[in-house]
Nucleic acid binder design. Sequence first.
RNA 1: UCCUCCUUAGCUCAGUUGGUUAGAGCAUCUGACUGUUAAUCAGAGGGUCGUCUGUUCAAGUCAGACAGGGGGAGCCA
Length: 482
Amino acid sequence: MFNQRIKIKQLLSGTPTGTEVVVMGWVRTFRNNQFVALNDGSTNANLQVVASLGEFEETILKRITTGASLKVTGTVVESLGKGQTVEVKATSIEILGDSDAEKYPLQPKKHSLEFLREKAHLRFRTNTFASVFRIRHALAFAVHQFFNERGFVYLNTPIITSSDAEGAGEMFRVTTLPMEGAPKNEQGEIDYTQDFFGKSTNLTVSGQLEGELGAMAFSEIYTFGPTFRAENSNTTRHLAEFWMIEPEMAFHDIEDNMNLAESFIQYLIQYVMKNNADDLAFLDARLAEEEKQLPTEKRSGLGLLEKLNLVVNNNFERITYTEAIDILLNSNHYKKKKFKYDVKWGIDLQSEHERYLVEQHFKKPVIVTGYPAAIKAFYMRMNDGCEAGKETVAAMDILAPGIGEIVGGSQREERLEVLEARMRSMHVPVEEMSWYLDTRRFGTVPHAGFGLGFERMIQFVTGMTNIRDVIAFARTPKNCEY
RNA sequence: UCCUCCUUAGCUCAGUUGGUUAGAGCAUCUGACUGUUAAUCAGAGGGUCGUCUGUUCAAGUCAGACAGGGGGAGCCA
């Protein structure tokens, strides 16, 4: 058996001195021709391997370069140096894989995130990205644990869909028809009856509609998978391929929905604070360092850990859309005409408005409910007793500091007639959606759900400002490396 | 898609009103030193100044187009 090694994280957490160990990992630095900082990805803490002078061939020492992989056998000893309590005194060092020092792009120094983004295949070997992706893993695990504890069924909704009725964004077409000389029908349009599925198909933009079908049987389900949007969005918070978590619950109204979303977010943060304290501490220090470089007016004034504690220990602010508009209209910011976009009832809130509410006014996450029906999707439940011309739906968005919208959800319209009427007025093809409407025909119930952008959640927890730095291999317009 | 800024050594960046042979730190290589912590010290190598076109006696520097990247906006999660 090849792998009898101990992982560095385990070794550093209390292996008694005198123990014989085998460790494997990659060289971060080799100092003084004697001290190897070895990392195996289990923690950012490096293991110091000591190659005592004169005990190793010069030809081996020459090959211990940054990025090279080693198998080290040795003894755990108390460290004579100051940077660590224990180290491994090597009895043998085997080079598993060389790393040409002249060509290896990562140096033992600070690199810019932009540079590392172009070296995405190697950036996991840096402390920042190692921490981010260990946290990403922990968050994914916590998502499943949260829902599993509550009896939700994990439903895998399809990635290829034929439904184009959601209006959630531009879609990527899926086809096996030839690009040139595609078969045409009598009207001269492309004949999708000859395509693989016999119809036009796309990559999913949301699993929600299928999720509702599941909720109408299991009571509570959630989806967690990749989602695709072909929007030409070039921002720090959009990806063409991203992961989304979409719970859908029967017998829930909008308030139950808010309660679940709020405790979900708090649960995820608490899980990471408990299980990834080292990584969070590293990112907290990193962010504090970054802040120092910024001019005073651009600093957030709140450390990463402080921010996370604030979110975990306080209820989210809950306001209606109408109240949000009033707050904006009464703000000095508005009176001094500092908003670029005008504020009046009926508008969709712009980022600058959301940022004002979250970052200036409330200074914590805010849940906004009761948006105008005209600016929201067809499946959202019409609120009863609205003033004419000011119809609202039972929608809710959770706005987070620094990220903006992190959750979008609603109570769904369960009344068949109301839903059909709304679909017709919004030009949603009612006949093609018959399978969806069956849930309202046969045993319809009040139900609700929301979508949480996984990468945005990771951004919030790690403090990374660009979404491309929290997904392993980002897909964005004009960019599909690896 | 729009606005805006950027592109000079492997990396991070200087480079004056256009003017001799384009610099620094780190990295790399060579040597010294040897309980170092992004080791230190000495020396060396390393450049089509993003690409193309133009203005000029002369362009890293000025103008235009294109490409790539950052930030912001829209769309949204």
